[in-house]
Design a protein around this nucleic acid. Structure first.
Length: 934
RNA sequence: GGGCGGUUAGCUCAGUUGGUCAGAGCGGCUGGUUUACACCCAGUAGGUCACAGGUUCGACUCCUGUACCGCCCACCA
């Protein structure tokens, strides 16, 4: 079973993944009595390819999961994909248009288009599944979910109805961000701004001058607004009217005074367009002004524009300016004005504010039960994080989070696209809108006998709106036809339920007799695995998603969705730029990297040396560096196997019981001791989510300590039991980081009867193997050997020479190990023979604690042995430290003796001072000891 | 305008509660092919830790201010 000279990831990865999967190692058991550890995978958009962002996410989460699984927890990682409503619909429509379909929405109609999208999504999901596997993600595929699964739809409807009944969901005319391209609203958070240069016009409007970059919205303007404190316009009173000549003839305008106006900007006066501007809308609301629509939902001017009706904005603007200019109303034009255009994050279309009737979630209404009081959704989001029920890593993002939550406004959840969870609201044509609505809050309604609340009924007529968890086609009151609300819900509405809706038993989804709490109670997965332990995602969606999960989940289940939020940063190019598809030069595609360097190397390169929440730069050399590390590990293992072979030992037959300390050399004991420290550090670090630290620690242990130090030193005299034990431990500890190569190597060195590495229990540090003294002594030996070699080189001794070393009597172990390592020393220093004695080094200039090395052609050196340091220097340093410590202690005691300090300083500070003092004294004692031994 | 970060060796970045922290990787330079590994080994050079104050016996670490860089949010009629 000779291993090839270099590790070839291509040859193993897919095979190993298939083995893991078929072994059931990924599958969690809801009936297990073990403590659970759950991670919900942030569902990638089901629109196409995995990118580095996903790769980071997968690598991090896989480490969490594998580590905890090995530690003996019931680890569940739920994979899935997101329907990404707007993005997906947009992609499919674009594809259809490319195929020659002009207006897919109109030509196909709702049902057919939705079917086409579903088809596309299926293909895309298959691609993504394959890609997730390539990364080595050990997620439970048997529990894979999709945000559009029927069971998730059920959850969405349940939550919608519950919120509606709690009065949290309401419908209202509000100004929304309308994307004319996608024909839908987008939420505030999904808006991006793009800088654009546009002419900035100043027009004469009655006695005032007003400026705008958007003359096409100005047709209906009949209010001029100024700041109440603006002296320039003192003579105009709030409510004054005047007639102004305007685009299509004279209009009567009213003066409005409002503090929203910035006196310093432009002329300090503006006209408002409440229908198409959020600020104007608020002013209009405050003063109860009329609002008129100027631009249609198709982005074209309406009849109010007169002769310009039907023109798209871009065409109309210059013509309107021309007309105003002819009328002599154009005062000036600033061609260099830069303003920011709102663009949709998903569809990339320019956003036009519009007033529309939309569904909103009220974030300020105090209706959520929390610790015996009623608080609002906003307060839920604040409380859970403030009280540390949910911890955010890195901590500074808590500030960012609060800053956002504190300023949160009602959330518009309806979208006018077809792809997504449809709003579970129905309208009866026989109903009377004035009557309000019928609710489905009685479960009996599910059997088709939905009853309207009698209070909502008037003789003969009933309410028009019915909110129902299950689809209905007939009015439960009058039996008339109903039509469903055409809108769909914001993607984040369903994503907000992700941690728990994925754990609801799909088999129960059809049982409409169950309420949401029943549904949760009777789902084994939910009971076992929720709340989840950690939510790992990019910091860029902390608002979109993390905050909304906290909101939706705590509301719906009464419990938090996760205990810890771990945020990773963006992966950037070598130059620090964002990677983008439009710039393929800088793009790193994980699918190109994996065949070339291996998934393990890619994983390491994205985790080691990166801190959470910070952007990271990634480039091929970096990945290459970790590929080298993987190869180093591979070759170290090869070497271990070779040693076994030479010793005639079968590595698989070596069990840890053969590790008898008495048979170990100094070097062995030093290695075993360091290994215990490693286990401790790695375990603690991973428990605290310090993945980068731990990665570096492992890297350095394997490469510097195990390979370059121990293996080199013990060549020829290896203790097979120690070798195999150490390698096994290293493979276990490294497995979460680089699962493939470790699993592959495990096959050759695992103890008889052991299974796959993925199922191997995590080691515990053994105190009895710790021995720091031994580690220090071995250092001395190493240094001695190096000194000999340096001496030989410096003295330019060509031929092989004999060496006689006399080691100080106080360091007999050093002499012993030198003898043990004789072959190695000879080779390293190119000596023909080595004689080691213990004694008092003779000759002039020798001091206690030195070794005399005599090369048998007359040369001689003297070498310090005491921990590799010059005794005199060490003594001086210690003396100095002692003096300092005494000073500090004196200062500390003086401070504590100061009654003023003790009385006034907070108790905490005084305690800290005392503790510090104790530490200093402790240290002083140690220094004293050390001084004595010198 | 509001908020959050960064500034440490040529490059990319660590530095966990103030006292062996001045570090790692890459790159550079000098040697080297020895029972695995050239995807290697042994060495080596290098930084007033942006700047200025302050707290402290002691500051890369805490506080204040300045300069530059970056991100998020709001928003410019």
């Amino acid at each position: 079973m000779a291993l090839p000279k270099a590790y070839d990831p291509k040859a193993c990865e897919d095979r190993i993944y298939a083995l893991w999967e078929s072994s059931g190692a990924f599958k969690a058991d809801a009936k297990s009595t073990k403590e659970s550890f759950t991670v919900s995978m942030p569902p990638p958009n089901a629109t196409g390819q995995l990118h580095l962002g996903h790769a980071v996410m997968l690598a991090l989460e896989d480490i969490f999961i594998r580590f905890n699984r090995m530690k003996g927890k019931e680890a569940l990682w739920v994979p899935g994909t997101d329907h990404a409503a707007i993005a997906t619909e947009s992609v499919v429509i674009k594809n259809l248009q490319k195929e020659g379909m002009r207006d897919p929405r109109a030509q196909l109609g709702r049902e057919k288009l939705v079917a086409r999208i579903a088809e596309f999504v299926e293909k895309s999901r298959a691609t993504i599944r394959g890609q997730i596997r390539k990364m080595g993600a050990s997620c439970d595929w048997s529990r894979e979910r999709y945000t559009m699964d029927p069971v998730l739809n059920r959850c969405v409807n349940e939550v919608f109805v519950q919120m509606y009944e709690d009065g949290l969901i309401y419908r209202g005319h509000r100004i929304v961000n309308w994307d004319p391209k996608m024909q839908t609203t987008v939420s505030d958070d999904e808006i991006e701004y793009r800088e654009e240069k546009a002419p900035f016009y100043t027009f004469q409007y009655g006695p005032f001058q007003i400026s705008t970059s958007r003359p096409e919205t100005k047709f209906g303007d009949k209010y001029v607004v100024m700041h109440p404190d603006d002296d320039r316009y003192d003579k105009y009173k709030h409510g004054d009217t005047f007639v102004a000549e305007w685009i299509n003839g004279p209009v009567t305008a009213t003066v409005i005074k409002d503090k929203a106006i910035d006196m310093a900007f432009g002329t300090g006066v503006m006209t408002i367009t409440p229908w198409h501007d959020p600020v104007d809308f608020e002013i209009a609301e405050r003063h109860d002004l009329q609002k008129e629509q100027i631009i249609g939902f198709d982005g074209k001017l309406l009849s109010i524009a007169g002769e310009f009706e039907g023109l798209p904005i871009a065409d109309a603007r210059p013509k309107i300016v021309e007309k105003l200019k002819e009328k002599g109303l154009l005062v000036k034009t600033d061609e260099n004005y830069v303003h920011r255009v709102a663009v949709s994050y998903r569809g990339k279309g320019v956003v036009e504010p519009q007033i529309k009737e939309q569904w909103f979630i009220d974030v300020n209404k105090p209706v959520v039960s929390w610790k015996r009081r009623k608080i609002s959704l906003k307060q839920i989001m604040q409380e859970t994080v403030r009280t540390k029920l949910i911890a955010i890593i890195p901590e500074r993002f808590e500030k960012v989070y609060f800053n956002w939550v504190d300023n949160l406004r009602d959330w518009c959840v309806s979208r006018q696209i077809w792809w997504g969870h449809r709003v579970p609201v129905y309208y009866c044509s026989e109903g009377d809108a004035v009557q309000g609505e019928v609710r489905s809050d009685e479960r009996s309604a599910m059997s088709g006998e939905l009853k309207a609340q009698s209070s909502k009924l008037k003789a003969g007529r009933h309410a028009a709106m019915i909110v129902s968890v299950t689809p209905i086609t007939q009015c439960p009151v009058c039996g008339g036809q109903v039509t469903q609300d055409p809108d769909t819900l914001d993607t984040w509405f369903s994503s907000g339920l992700w941690t728990w809706s994925t754990l609801v038993d799909p088999a129960l989804a059809d049982d409409t007799s169950l309420s949401l709490p029943d549904l949760l109670k009777s789902s084994p997965d939910f009971r076992k695995f929720h709340p989840t332990q950690v939510m790992e995602t990019g910091y860029d969606i902390i608002f979109f998603w993390v905050a909304r999960m906290i909101l939706m989940t705590t509301y719906a289940t009464g419990d938090i969705p996760f205990e810890t939020v771990y945020l990773h940063g963006l992966i950037r190019t070598r130059e620090g730029k964002k990677m983008s598809k439009s710039d393929p030069e800088t793009m790193i595609d994980p699918l190109d990297i994996i065949p070339k360097y291996g998934a393990d190397a890619l994983r390491l390169s994205m985790i080691v040396g990166q801190s959470p929440g910070a952007d990271a730069r990634l480039y091929e050399e970096k990945i290459g560096g970790y590929r080298n590390f993987i190869n180093k590990l591979w070759n170290a293992s090869r070497f271990v196997l070779l040693q076994c072979e030479q010793a005639g030992a079968d590595p698989q037959k070596i069990d840890n019981g053969q590790l008898i300390i008495d048979n170990c050399s100094l070097a062995d004991r030093a290695l075993l001791s360091a290994l215990q420290q490693l286990i401790e550090d790695v375990t603690k670090g991973l428990d605290e989510y310090r993945l980068s630290d731990v990665g570096e620690r492992l890297y350095s242990f394997v490469w510097d300590y195990f390979c370059d130090w121990y293996l080199e030193l013990t060549k020829g005299e290896a203790n097979i039991a120690v070798l195999v034990h150490t390698l096994r431990t290293i493979l276990i500890l490294l497995h979460p980081y680089c699962p493939f190569v470790t699993e592959e190597l495990w096959g050759s060195v695992k103890p008889a009867g052991a299974g796959m590495l993925i199922k191997e229990p995590w080691p515990e540090a053994q105190k009895k193997l710790r021995d720091e003294e031994v580690e220090a002594q071995l250092q001395i030996v190493i240094q001695t050997v190096k000194e000999i070699r340096a001496l030989r080189v410096a003295q330019n001794v060509e031929a092989q020479v004999k060496v006689h070393i006399i080691i100080d009597v106080d360091y007999p172990e050093v002499a012993e190990i030198l003898r043990l390592q004789e072959a190695h020393v000879l080779r390293l220093a190119r000596l023909s023979s080595l004689e080691v004695n213990v004694g008092i080094p003779a000759g002039p200039g020798f001091r206690h604690g030195q070794a005399a090395i005599r090369i048998l052609n007359g040369m001689e050196i003297h070498m310090p042995l005491a921990g590799l340091v010059d005794v005199e220097k060490e003594r001086a340093a210690m003396a100095k430290e002692k003096e300092q410590l005494e000073q500090f202690i004196a200062a500390g005691e003086a401070k504590l003796a100061n009654q003023d300090f003790v009385a006034r300083a907070p108790e905490k500070v005084v305690l800290a001072e005392k503790e510090k003092l104790a530490q200093l004294k402790d240290k002083l004692a140690k220094v004293g000891e050390r001084l004595k031994t010198l």
